[in-house]
Computed example of a mutant assay.
Amino acid sequence: MISPDAIRGYVDLMVLSLLREGPSYAYKLAQQIAAATGKDYAMKQTTLYSAVKRLESAGFLASFPDVSESGKPRTYYKITETGSSHLEQKIVEWRETKSVVDRFVEGTNR
């Protein structure tokens, strides 16, 4: 299982990537993350809610009230234009980070 410390800096990337596909609410995002990561990573609800609120405060997400498929009122989140730009930057950062770490893992750091 992946340590929460190892993935902490990429929670925003995960959330923004999911919302790039369309608006959603936090519980559904948690389900999507769990389905995508399986037993490799378990995100705590508090981590997800903190990320969503932080992203909203930064202007990367906007929230609005709506009703879920089950008929329950929910707070939905959608990615903003600024959030889309931030996501693209985070994707570039992830690829660069992965490239650097891979050099050490594969022994090509010299």
Score class of each variant (00 low, 15 high):
Ala36Trp: 06
Phe64Lys: 06
Gly38Gln: 12
Ile7Val: 15
Gly38His: 12
Ala36Glu: 09
Ile7Ser: 03
Leu18Ile: 14
Val52Ala: 03
Tyr27Thr: 04
Ala34Ser: 10
Pro23Ser: 04
Pro23His: 11
Lys78Ser: 11
Glu81Trp: 01
Ser70Glu: 13
Val67Trp: 06
His86Pro: 02
Trp94Met: 12
Pro4Asn: 07
Val105Met: 09
Ser17Glu: 07
Glu81Cys: 02
Ser24Cys: 08
Lys53Tyr: 12
Ser57Ile: 02
Tyr10Arg: 11
Thr46Ser: 11
Trp94Phe: 14
Pro65Glu: 12
Ala30Phe: 08
Leu61Trp: 01
Pro4Ala: 04
Asp40Ala: 13
Ile91Gln: 15
Pro73Asn: 10
Asp40His: 14
Gln89Trp: 11
Val92Gly: 07
Thr108Ser: 07
Ala26Ile: 04
Tyr49Ile: 11
Lys98Tyr: 09
Phe60Ser: 03
Arg103Met: 10
Ser68Met: 05
Tyr77Gly: 00
Phe60Pro: 10
Tyr76Leu: 08
Asn109Gly: 05
Ala34Phe: 05
Ala58Pro: 05
Asn109Ala: 14
Val100Asp: 01
His86Ser: 10
Pro73Phe: 13
Lys98Ala: 15
Tyr49Trp: 03
Leu19Asp: 04
Asp66His: 06
Arg8Tyr: 04
Glu88Lys: 14
Pro65Arg: 10
Ala51Met: 01
Leu13Cys: 08
Val52Trp: 00
Thr97Asn: 10
Ser68Thr: 14
Lys39Tyr: 12
Val52Cys: 04
Asn109Ile: 08
Met1Arg: 13
Lys90Thr: 09
Ala35Tyr: 11
Thr80Gln: 07
Ala6Ile: 02
Glu106Gln: 11
Thr108Glu: 15
Glu88Met: 08
Ala62Met: 05
Arg20Asn: 14
Arg8Asn: 06
Leu87Thr: 03
Val92Met: 13
Arg8Lys: 07
Glu21Phe: 03
Ala30Ser: 09
Ser3Phe: 04
Asp66Arg: 02
Arg8Met: 03
Gln89Cys: 13
Val100Arg: 13
Lys28Ala: 06
Thr75Met: 14
Gly83Glu: 02
Thr47Gly: 00
Phe60Met: 12
Pro4Gln: 14
Glu106Gly: 00
Ala62Glu: 15
Lys28Cys: 04
Tyr49Leu: 05
Leu55His: 01
Arg54Tyr: 03
Arg54Asp: 07
Gly38Ile: 11
Thr82Gly: 10
Thr75Glu: 07
Gly9Phe: 02
Gln45Arg: 11
Met1Val: 12
Gly71Thr: 12
Ile7His: 02
Thr97Ile: 01
Phe104Lys: 00
Glu81Gln: 10
Val52Tyr: 00
His86Tyr: 08
Tyr77Trp: 08
Pro73Trp: 09
Asn109Thr: 03
Asn109Ser: 04
Gly22Ala: 11
Lys39Met: 08
Lys53Gln: 08
Phe104His: 07
Thr37Lys: 08
Trp94His: 14
Asp40Tyr: 12
Asp5Ser: 00
Met1Phe: 01
Tyr49Gln: 11
Gly38Leu: 03
Asp5Asn: 05
Trp94Glu: 07
Glu21Val: 01
Leu19Lys: 00
Val101Glu: 02
Lys44Asn: 06
